[in-house]
Simulated assay, not measured.
Amino acid sequence: MKLHLLVLLAALAVSACDEMSDQPRYDEYAPSTLFPDGKSMQSPPAGTMARGDPEPLTSLRERPPMSLALLKRGQERFGIYCTPCHDAAGTGHGTVPSRGFPNPPSFHIQRLVDAPSRYFVDVITHGHGVMYSYADRVVPADRWAITAYIRALQLSANTPVAALSRAERTRLREASP
C-alpha cells in the first residue's frame, strides 16, 4: 500500500513540473513588441565578447608595456577580485580565509617572487589549488594589470624606507595610522 502511494505521489510530482516546457518566447527573427526596434533578436551589449573570440585572447598572449595607468587598473581589479582572499597587501590573510577557507600563499614568499609574470596570468585564467578560474570574471587585459600590481606589491614589501625620497617618506608617514 505504501509503495503504491509513493509511486502515485512521484507521478503527480513529475507531472506538475511541466510548466517550464511551454513558456512563451520569441523565435529568432520574429517581430517583437518588447523592444523599440520591433526585432526579437538584439545585438549584444557593448563590451561583450563571444567565447573563443581571438581578439581578447591576443591581449592575453601579449604582455602590455608597464605604465601608471596599468598599475592603477591592476590595483582597482586586485581590490575587487583578489583582496577578499589575499588581502590588500597580498599576504593571504583576507576576510574569506578568516571564515574558514584555506589561506592562499602570500605573494611575498620567495617562490612567487621568483615566478614569471605569466604564472600569475595563468593562475587567474585557469585557477590553481583551491582557487578557481577567474577567466569568466577578469578580462585578459586586466589579468596582466593585476599581475603588474602584484609585482608592485612584491617590490614595495622589500624596499627599505631609506631608498625612498624625502617626499615619499613624508607621504608614507602621513598615510600611516
Rank of each mutant, 00 (worst) to 15 (best):
P102E: 09
I80F: 09
P45E: 10
T33G: 13
K2N: 09
G94L: 08
N103I: 05
P45K: 12
S67L: 09
F35Y: 14
P102C: 10
F120K: 05
G129A: 12
L70T: 09
E168N: 02
E62R: 14
G79N: 10
R173W: 00
P24H: 05
P104N: 09
C82I: 05
L70A: 14
T48A: 14
D53T: 11
A13G: 05
P104S: 10
P65D: 15
L6T: 10
I124G: 02
A163M: 00
E19C: 05
G79V: 10
G92V: 07
R166C: 00
G92T: 06
D22L: 09
P56Y: 13
I150S: 05
L57P: 08
V123F: 02
G52D: 12
Q154D: 05
E19D: 08
N158Y: 04
Q110G: 06
D87W: 03
L172R: 06
D37T: 13
D53P: 08
A148I: 09
L112M: 15
T125R: 13
R173S: 03
H126I: 11
G127W: 10
S156Q: 03
S98V: 03
I150G: 04
G90C: 08
T159D: 02
Q42G: 08
T91K: 12
D87C: 07
A167L: 02
P84V: 11
S32C: 11
A16E: 07
D53W: 11
V96F: 04
P31F: 04
T159Q: 07
G100L: 11
Y132W: 13
V113H: 08
S32V: 09
A16H: 02
L12A: 12
V138M: 08
L155Q: 04
R61C: 08
M1C: 06
S21Y: 04
L57G: 12
P45W: 09
T159V: 09
L70F: 09
M49K: 14
L172K: 05
L5N: 06
M41H: 13
P65A: 15
C17I: 02
N158L: 04
R73H: 11
V113L: 14
T159F: 02
G92L: 05
V130K: 12
Q154T: 06
L164A: 01
P140T: 12
H126S: 15
A141S: 12
P44S: 13
L112K: 08
G74Q: 11
Q110W: 08
T147C: 08
D18M: 02
R77P: 02
R137F: 14
A115E: 07
C85Q: 06
E168G: 01
Y134Q: 14
A175D: 00
M131N: 12
M66I: 11
T58E: 15
D122V: 04
